[in-house]
Design a binder for these strands. Structure first.
Lengths: 144, 144
DNA sequence: AAAATAAAAGAGTTTTTTGTCTTTTATTAA
DNA sequence: TTAATAAAAGACAAAAAACTCTTTTATTTT
């Protein structure tokens, strides 16, 4: 469904959002540890997300990644689109470029509904929301 | 969502199903042309599907790929699982191996429903059904 | 000001996916 | 039974995705 890069990205952003709640900034190592991902790989991904303004960062001692109030309004859809593009949300299930309402593939109408639901789910889920969810102890992100 | 291989596979199988309706067998070239895919690549995929019994084939002149009555009972889910495995249908949206009802990731319950719908859609859609749909002219599979 | 810390940037490598080509085997038609 | 046809099998090649490492730049603490 999502690329591995995107899976890591979502997990990392949820992790950062949670830490940001207490005003903490977190380093790459801590994040990688927290979500069970390769350190260098997640570093690259975070760089990208930072450049796109989805997360914030500060260099130097006491530096690290964090999210400000505004950024917590970003949704899962924003992250997915930033990393994987919008193919999943808008593209044809069979990979046909010219697939459309007028010239649909055999699965077009069947998938339209499910794709809409997926999009809605991703678009309505804000990071601020997940911040709380992850807070509720039960949930985990890969730390083991 | 699906791998490119899987997209081609679904398109090819629908194409073959449609041709099989008139008792025709179709060659690799014709299929590749019909669904707009690389010839050699679809050949490999068809080989795999044939080995797994989802489609049938015959060598030599007048040979080619086809589907018998039984095979038309296969569903989209069967094809997807045969090519991409069941990760899409059963795996965690965030790629976490230990994600479960008892130890869910932050998106577990949100995605459970949508995944179920996707699975249901794929599992109830038989090739025999698509055979008819594709027949109804409006639909296309990539032939341009 | 110097040393330490941590992200940014850039340049790789490895693995997987996608795509290509050639040889072999089975089947049919002449 | 020979020639033609078409899939099966196997071996490559290219591109993309996943992952690693080193150097540079910014920031802070001593």
């Amino acid at each position: 469904m999502f690329s591995k890069t995107c899976e890591y990205a979502i997990r990392a952003v949820i992790f950062i959002a949670r830490e940001s709640k207490d005003g903490r900034r977190v380093g790459v190592r801590e994040i990688a540890q927290g979500i069970g991902s390769p350190v260098y790989f997640i570093a690259k991904i975070l760089q990208e997300l930072s450049k796109k303004g989805i997360i914030q960062s500060l260099k130097g001692p006491t530096g690290g990644f964090y999210m400000d109030g505004q950024s917590l309004d970003y949704t899962l859809a924003d992250i997915v689109v930033a990393i994987d593009g919008d193919k999943l949300l808008t593209g044809c299930a069979l990979g046909l470029n010219e697939c459309s309402e007028k010239r649909p593939c055999p699965l077009h109408f069947e998938f339209r509904h499910i794709r809409k639901e997926l999009h809605a789910l991703l678009a309505r889920t804000k990071l601020s929301e997940l911040q709380d969810k992850f807070d509720a102890s039960i949930f985990y992100l890969g730390s083991k």
